[in-house]
């Protein structure tokens, strides 16, 4: 298997050892590094997403996170603008290196698995996807 799907939006190309976007195949970063280093990042005021549902003029707690305590850090694919990951962080806290994959072990693990592998997403109802589309990729829409 050459392209290993790692998240909804990320795959690892084992030949080139690169993180790629599963939506547009943008080449993101070395698979031996933090994929976030190849993404665009935005510091979002959490009140824009979780807007106050009760009047902030009248109340201290409003369903909105406190923007001095919590920021929403959004990570976008530079190729297609897909939001690949979101982190809720105290202001100034470094983003988390969330997936540090042992590429040599992954290559060994996936050796012998073809390029057309069915990956299930759950067991309550049969929802699968095939990795075939990744190997047949011919460019973004």
């Amino acid at each position: 298997m050459r392209y290993v799907p790692m998240t909804e939006y990320l795959q690892i190309d084992l030949n080139d050892e690169r993180w790629q976007c599963r939506r547009c195949h943008h080449d993101i970063a070395s698979a031996r590094e933090n994929y976030k280093t190849g993404l665009l990042v935005y510091d979002r005021d959490p009140r824009e997403i979780h807007r106050p549902l009760i009047d902030p003029e009248k109340y201290e707690f409003t369903f909105s996170p406190d923007p001095l305590w919590c920021r929403i850090v959004e990570f976008y694919c530079p190729g297609c603008g897909t939001m690949i990951e979101v982190e809720y962080l105290p202001p100034g806290h470094p983003p988390t290196y969330d997936m540090e994959i042992d590429i040599d072990a992954l290559r060994a693990q996936k050796a012998g698995h073809g390029d057309d592998v069915v990956i299930p997403l759950g067991r309550d109802i049969p929802v699968n996807f095939s990795t075939k589309s990744s190997s047949q990729w011919e460019g973004g829409k």
Partner: peptide
């Protein structure tokens, strides 16, 4: 999506401005 590409900053630039040595004052 285009607006994201506009406002999103490359990771190294973002980190340079974002990361602090210690938690925010006052919290």
């Amino acid at each position: 999506r285009r607006a994201r590409l506009e406002r999103g900053r490359p990771y190294p630039d973002f980190i340079q401005d974002w990361v602090t040595e210690a938690p925010p004052e006052g919290i």
